[in-house]
Amino acid sequence: NKFNKEQQWATYEILNLPNLNEEQRKAFIDSLKDDPSQSANLLAEAKKLNDAQA
């Protein structure tokens, strides 16, 4: 299913963002699990935070 693929991709991407700390990473991944339909939005937020902390 589409959300499952998006969720897996977003999880992979978030795990590989270098500037997030473990707590932030875990929070994003927990949110992905809670609502896979928000995968794209959550990934965008994670990338923004990652860039802000660069």
Rank of each mutant, 00 (worst) to 15 (best):
K2Y: 06
K2L: 10
F3T: 05
N4P: 05
N4G: 09
K5F: 04
E6A: 03
Q7S: 05
Q7H: 06
Q8W: 11
Q8A: 07
Q8R: 07
Q8H: 06
W9P: 03
W9Y: 14
T11V: 12
T11P: 02
I14V: 05
I14Y: 01
L15I: 07
L15A: 14
L15Y: 08
N16V: 07
N16M: 09
N16R: 08
L17F: 07
P18H: 07
P18I: 05
N19A: 11
N19R: 03
N19K: 03
N19V: 02
N19L: 04
N19M: 08
N19G: 05
L20M: 02
N21E: 08
N21M: 03
N21T: 14
E22M: 13
E22P: 12
E22Y: 08
E22F: 07
E23Q: 13
Q24M: 04
Q24L: 02
R25T: 06
R25Q: 10
R25D: 00
K26W: 10
K26V: 07
K26E: 07
A27K: 12
A27L: 14
A27I: 14
I29V: 08
I29R: 03
D30G: 09
D30L: 11
S31Q: 15
S31K: 14
S31L: 12
K33L: 09
K33V: 14
K33G: 07
K33W: 10
K33H: 14
D34K: 11
D34V: 13
D34H: 11
D34Q: 13
D35T: 07
D35I: 04
D35Q: 09
S37D: 07
Q38D: 10
Q38S: 09
A40F: 10
A40L: 13
A40E: 11
A40H: 12
A40I: 11
A40R: 11
N41P: 06
L42N: 03
L43M: 07
E45W: 07
E45N: 05
E45T: 10
E45A: 13
A46V: 02
A46P: 00
A46Y: 02
A46M: 01
K47Y: 13
K47N: 11
N50Q: 02
N50Y: 01
D51R: 06
D51G: 08
A52Q: 13
A52R: 09
Q53N: 09
Q53G: 06
Q53P: 03
Q53T: 05
A54M: 11
A54Q: 12
